[in-house]
Simulated assay, not measured.
Amino acid sequence: MTILVTGATGNVGRQVVEHLVKRGADVRALVRDPSKAKFPQDVRVVQGDFLDIDSLRNAMSGVSTLFLLNAVVSDEFTQALIALNIARSAGIERIVYLSVIHADLYVNVPHFAGKFGVERMIEQMDFKATILRPAYFIQNDLMVKDVITGYGVYTMPIGAKGLAMIDVRDIAEIAALALLRREQAAEPLALDRINLVGPETLTGADIAAIWSEVLARPISYDGDNTDGFEQNLKQFVPAWMAYDMRLMGERFLTDGMLPEVGDVERLTALLGRPLRPYRNFASETAASS
């Protein structure tokens, strides 16, 4: 009984592997570059890529449960469908898929629409899956850490509707627990969806206020300019991705990213502890700067 973790060297995947190993699971990690794979000794590392069919077939051979995480790339949907088809051919029924909250609402945002398409394929192909739908990753704000600390401005386009931000560490632990639940079940469990949210819903002004307290000096919010956000991102990522992120930011401003009734309580029960608040991240980040 083996769990295959894709995206295993990323911020989420690496921690999923660590949680699984600590809980005694037999783990296989799919990586593109084994030289970057720093895992516990018992983890079997396999080299592969979502577009390298033979490598995927090799990676999925003998696997019982799959953690499907693929990055935001221009062909994300194609990569995921290839992985699902090979998983089905390999006899893998049990899947945990990392999607995104409101995938069915943010229909004009490319990577949201792509993930919603993957969700639909998981259903149509009759996989027994847990679809995890995380809200905004708190650690995304590491991208603007220097702007916050150096210029006193929080520039992410969060808006006034609020986002139920979640810590990446909580995402990884919940994903590992979902994988173990499916792996250890006597029969494949029915499909379910879980919104992954943080303990509070924060606006741009709320986050600026938290940073102001943590840094003991005024931090202002200036994130509603999505055009400026896109132009700045184009310095670091491809233009298509910067535009994708701009569209997401515009939906933040108009719709927010809000939890459903009972989401926080469900996650707290799963973890057996409170979810990590944004203030913890801000304090840790400030202390390490």
Rank of each mutant, 00 (worst) to 15 (best):
M143Q: 14
Y243N: 15
A282T: 00
P34V: 10
A185V: 06
T201L: 08
I122W: 12
D146A: 12
G7S: 09
F112C: 04
D146L: 00
R251C: 12
A8W: 05
M241P: 00
R133N: 13
T201F: 05
L81M: 14
A208P: 07
S55L: 04
L275N: 01
T130W: 10
R246A: 08
I194Y: 03
A172G: 04
V107C: 08
G13C: 03
E173S: 02
I101G: 05
S64C: 01
N11A: 15
A59L: 04
L132G: 04
E265G: 06
G13E: 08
E93M: 08
A205T: 13
L191D: 05
A216V: 10
T2W: 15
V214Y: 11
A209W: 00
L4H: 08
V63S: 00
D206P: 02
M156I: 13
K234F: 00
E265C: 05
A185T: 00
S212T: 15
W240P: 13
G13S: 08
Y221Q: 03
L81K: 15
A90K: 14
A113K: 15
L196M: 12
S220Y: 07
Q184Y: 13
V73T: 15
V147Q: 11
G159A: 12
M257F: 13
Y136T: 11
V46E: 04
E187R: 05
A175K: 09
D255Q: 15
A287R: 12
E18I: 01
A59K: 07
A37G: 07
D255C: 12
N85Y: 04
I148M: 09
P277W: 05
L270T: 14
Y106R: 11
E230W: 03
G150F: 02
E18M: 01
